[in-house]
Design a protein around this nucleic acid. Structure first.
Lengths: 349, 349
DNA sequence: TTGTAGGCGTTATCAA
DNA sequence: TTGATAACGCCTACAA
């Protein structure tokens, strides 16, 4: 099956003009007579002519499209961030092309190359948890492809970056658990490679330190696939509760880990005995049993900010030398799951 | 900023061959000497040559890309369906370009046109709740653009379609509520234009009929934006509970409506008194308070099936005349929210 | 004011 | 076995 479209040639032939005349008339050039313009525009309208963006991309080497690479769309944080990205891009006349890396370095590379070679004008990327090698991105960036990192960022490339204040978010959540008099707070987090993992771990440690609680490596568990594999979280929890120091509270570092962790705790009948707080952008934390204490990232705003920065880079005439890393505040929403005294929820019976 | 890439020309110049020789060597043509091939391939590898897909698209009028239009990515059903789409597309060597209509006919049109003119090889679409006019899609379809509808389908275009068995899903859920001895079961659903709305309403009615419960129009509420606007659901619930016949159970017809509805019931302290079941693909229904009875759609499989059908259309040499509408079974997962006797959940305390 | 020619990167056809 | 040329759809420098 093939798809027929009207081209400038068709118009030129039908109207007995040259293609250049038609082209100029369509773009409203002042060097074309009003009459010709009118004839051409009317005919174009009539046969529903649309310029072929592929041809334009080839010619202008730009596409008015922005490529986005995230690990997973089925994730509250990313889908909200994407909405932020779209809200800006749409208004500025850019299209958004979304691809998923599924936390795999390999898939991420394929996606990045696809974007680059399809002449997106710029790239927004949140690194996969499997990514260690940044040479491809570095390469493209040096060749002139504008890139903005968001959420999972890197030190290795000097460009604009946007992320949540993961450090403070983790610090406040952990501190909240400490003030609730939990003594053995475990931390289940993603791949240690990720910027967000490091920042959140740092916040967790800082909170402990501030309250003179010794940091214990055994209470920190890493899920290298960010919770994409159920077993990861299951194993982490089993190790924690079979270990020497059984935690009385858990602080989780990502959407998926948070969810799986709750399921596990429920299975093990530990849900109501264990203090709980986690990073997640779910809209339904309030409906959980018990209602869940969460650290919420400004996902929509992160997407917006990253996109504004990217478009600025794309449209800037001279090359940019001053780069910025914007850090947006998280929000701690305290609900019953992190309170020491977790009676069954009777208020809504 | 501009982005430099290596082209066949560069290779030709460097190696003192013509572009056609290089082109053929790169594609392994047998009419090129082994030696030349080796030289070209090695050099191409060395300078990291990648063919420009934009140029290829222009030449071949195909892009090996599939366009997807959904109402919202931040939706369990759609994000899972997209994963299904990607799983097939990736293996067959197609890229997936995702766009959102935000339940707006206008945005949907823009996206469809974007896809069409960017020469996607085919289109997967789930209609927005605002869509009444299908002439654009009809037009493109008649011009030869392969289109497969999934989830929210239409009678107006004769092509492949895939959807869940919304009728049976609704029937079983409603019947389950009836068997739990709920007497006044309300139904909150999406825009009446949508195929899924009609099918689910049909199932709901059928269940009532089967059990000799008279259908009451006042117990059905439509949210024209599919719950994208919070107020919609709030108003629907208020109307229901301020009406003459106060419902003792609610059956909701979409992910968002389900969630908002629960929030409202919680606010109004009606959550534990009201029987509840709803269409949703959330993974965390079990963690809710009370654990939620859900009708789950085979989202991943719907995405996969639609993509297989689309690729078949794309790659078929002669035009297809026999079209199929596949209907995949839903799954009713019964949990506490729909049980008549909803004691506070003590088992997990 | 309009037309001609060349180029964006690639491949197919034809010629050498 | 290799090279020159034209074409995909569009735009623009230059010519008329």
């Amino acid at each position: 099956m093939r798809f027929d479209t009207v081209t400038i040639k068709d118009i030129a032939k039908a109207l007995n003009f040259s293609t250049s005349t038609v082209s100029r008339a369509l773009r409203g050039s002042h060097e074309i007579s009003e009459e010709t313009k009118k004839i051409v525009l009317e005919y174009a309208e009539k046969i529903n002519y649309r310029p072929n963006p592929v041809a334009l991309s080839l010619k202008e080497r730009r596409s008015r499209a922005i490529g986005v690479v995230v690990s997973e769309i089925a994730n509250n944080f990313f889908s909200q961030a994407i909405n932020g990205i779209e809200s800006i891009a749409y208004n500025r006349g850019y299209h958004v092309i979304i691809t998923q890396s599924h936390e795999s370095e390999e898939r991420e590379k394929v996606n990045v190359m696809h974007h680059a070679s399809r002449s997106v004008d710029g790239l927004l990327i949140s690194l996969s948890s499997g990514t260690v090698d940044l040479t491809l991105l570095k390469d493209l960036y040096e060749k002139g492809l504008p890139i903005v990192f968001f959420d999972r960022i890197t030190d290795e490339i000097d460009t604009h970056k946007v992320t949540a204040n993961n450090y403070l978010g983790a610090l406040h959540a952990t501190e909240h658990l400490i003030l609730q008099e939990f003594k053995k707070i475990a931390h289940i987090t993603s791949s240690p490679y990720l910027s967000i993992t490091k920042e959140r771990l740092q916040g967790y440690k800082e909170a402990l330190d501030k309250h003179n609680i010794p940091f214990n490596e055994a209470l920190v568990k890493y899920c290298n696939h960010g919770g994409m594999i159920v077993d990861e979280v299951e194993i982490a929890i089993k190790e924690l509760f079979n270990g020497e120091i059984k935690p009385d509270a858990i602080f989780t570092a990502s959407d998926r880990i948070t969810t799986f962790c709750l399921s596990e705790l429920k299975k093990l009948q530990l849900k109501k005995a264990t203090g709980f707080a986690g990073f997640t952008n779910t809209r339904v934390g309030e409906l959980f049993d018990p209602p869940m204490t969460v650290v919420q990232q400004p996902a929509f705003e992160i997407g917006q900010t990253a996109t504004e920065m990217l478009i600025q880079m794309i449209e800037s005439k001279r090359s940019i030398t001053e780069f910025e890393t914007k850090i947006l505040d998280t929000k701690l929403i305290i609900r019953k799951s992190s309170l020491k005294d977790k009676k069954p929820d009777l208020t809504t019976v």
